[in-house]
Write a protein that binds this DNA or RNA. Sequence first.
DNA 1: CGGTAGACTGTCCATAAGAACAGTGTTCTT
DNA 2: AAGAACACTGTTCTTATGGACAGTCTACCG
Lengths: 203, 203
Amino acid sequence: MKPISPRQQDILNFIRQFIEQEEFPPTIAEITRALGLKSPHGVREQLQALARKGAIELIPSASRGIRLLQKAAEQDGLPLIGKVAAGRPLMTEANVEQYCKLGPELFQNKADYLLRVQGSSMRDAGILDGDLLVVQQAAEARSGQIVVARLHDEVTVKTLRLAGEMAYLEPANPEFPVLAVDLSKQELSIEGVVVGVIRNRID
Amino acid sequence: MKPISPRQQDILNFIRQFIEQEEFPPTIAEITRALGLKSPHGVREQLQALARKGAIELIPSASRGIRLLQKAAEQDGLPLIGKVAAGRPLMTEANVEQYCKLGPELFQNKADYLLRVQGSSMRDAGILDGDLLVVQQAAEARSGQIVVARLHDEVTVKTLRLAGEMAYLEPANPEFPVLAVDLSKQELSIEGVVVGVIRNRID
DNA sequence: CGGTAGACTGTCCATAAGAACAGTGTTCTT
DNA sequence: AAGAACACTGTTCTTATGGACAGTCTACCG
């Protein structure tokens, strides 16, 4: 999108705030008054510029015919990442299955995305195949936390255990092995910390 | 709130749908056209009636000055029921801890409320102490479903197993007993069906 | 049987609000 | 130095819109 001038940003902010408060968009005259201007025409031109830049949509001849466009991102909620394509960063368009609205009041830590669990290696921690993990993006984690980690281009969910130069990725299922990583020799990148679990299928 | 007539409900539905689609409320004339009426005055009176009944708010002299009021209930999200007071219906004000916003796209079945789990009797089904169950209100359930049931004034979460006149409430933890209920002698009331699980604390 | 509420038509008015035209001055970039 | 984008004032025009008045018809409620 093209750059938005400071004044246009002012107008955009006012519209956003107005909608927040009144539940409908302002008229051009209301914007004019709010900015302390004397003629509505200046505002009108700015609105048309904003429309050209793709920030808003103007509905011709309709009073209060202003629609904010990139509000969409907020409304979509958290991205749900299904299958992770090898060698790709997690939060890639291609990985996102859908967007889920989740109120922030549910999780004490900020949630960044949802990740669908594959396999039952964390079964005894109450994380089952097909569950959605609520993940907070983080590059580091404390020992004992359940993390989303990337090892040799593969993404895995395990409990992280740190002991000096060694990191252990512990499953919560005796049928799976503990992965030991020598941090001085291999690279282990933390993608995020699990802050919640959601199960939407009960069999 | 006072009762809303069928016609007024029509108008309310149209306004709701219009806002959903256009992001701003309709004008009186637009409502008139949508309902196939010839004069805007009839609609105007209905709007004033709706305002008297507390369903909407009319902002005088403002174009599209219609605000939906009980939209608040939706916005509040699902009620989260913490501890259940004995002998009281579940969805009582006193039982509600808070309201949580949850997008409906997450659960294929409609969710009615959240219930905090106490105890670990469903541990092996991946339902742990402190988890939030996503519950759909229902008076009946199929055999094999995980249900919220009330037995002797106590609310419990178990897998329901039906066999003729007998109902079994099976825990998912060998440390807990199966509860057998003879439906011809005792009363077992189903409060709802579990359609999802949310864990917001990871220890 | 009168009163009230619901559900309209039809007309009219004042103004709120979008649209357009004619300008002015500034700050950039090319 | 010219052109484009920004950031306005000021005026005029038309239509969209809310608001008001005068009625009609029906269904209920007590």
